[in-house]
Simulated scan of single mutants.
Amino acid sequence: MTADQVAPEGPVTAGSIADAVRAVPGVAFLRPGLSALLRASARTAPARTDRTAPGVRLGHGAAGRVVSAEVEVVLHRGHRAVDVTRAVRAAVRGAARPGDTGTTAMPVTVTVTGIV
């Protein structure tokens, strides 16, 4: 999220973080986990809610605030993985804590699972 964008209203969700990650140049898509793939193949998948998103796992603190995030992405060929993962990490932190200028950084793990 850049300084000229308005912070989203309401609680932070995996869906809002997934949207921020998808907007990063070089990200092809988020990689769904095995459980999401199995649900999709069974055709009994529940409707997607904002609390879950394929490829995004959030850790919550006692007050419900997002305290950590794990993101799995597939990159577009021709982009340096180190640059894209840094941008993804910044996008996740910006989406999880809009307007937070604290010095403590939220742990964000970004895993590149493929290149297309």
Rank of each mutant, 00 (worst) to 15 (best):
L58Q: 11
V56K: 06
G26L: 05
A42Y: 05
L30N: 10
D50T: 00
P25H: 05
L34W: 14
T44M: 05
P32H: 07
R51F: 08
S41E: 11
D19Q: 05
A14M: 03
A20P: 10
A28F: 12
S35M: 10
R39S: 13
R48C: 00
G15T: 00
V24C: 08
A28C: 06
A42H: 04
R22Q: 14
A28G: 00
A14N: 04
T13D: 04
A53M: 10
I17R: 04
R48K: 04
L37R: 14
P54Q: 12
P54N: 14
A36F: 03
R39C: 03
F29N: 11
A42D: 13
L30W: 14
A42N: 02
R39N: 13
P32M: 08
S16E: 10
R43A: 09
A45S: 09
S35R: 09
A23P: 02
L38K: 01
L38E: 11
V21K: 02
D19G: 05
V56Y: 14
A18L: 01
V27S: 08
A53D: 14
A36Q: 12
D50K: 00
G55P: 04
A45R: 11
P25Y: 03
A18M: 02
G26P: 01
L37H: 12
I17G: 01
I17Q: 05
G26S: 06
V21N: 03
G15L: 01
V27T: 12
V27D: 09
P46V: 00
V24A: 08
P46E: 10
L58N: 12
R51W: 12
A20N: 07
T44A: 07
R48A: 11
A14Y: 06
S16H: 05
R48L: 06
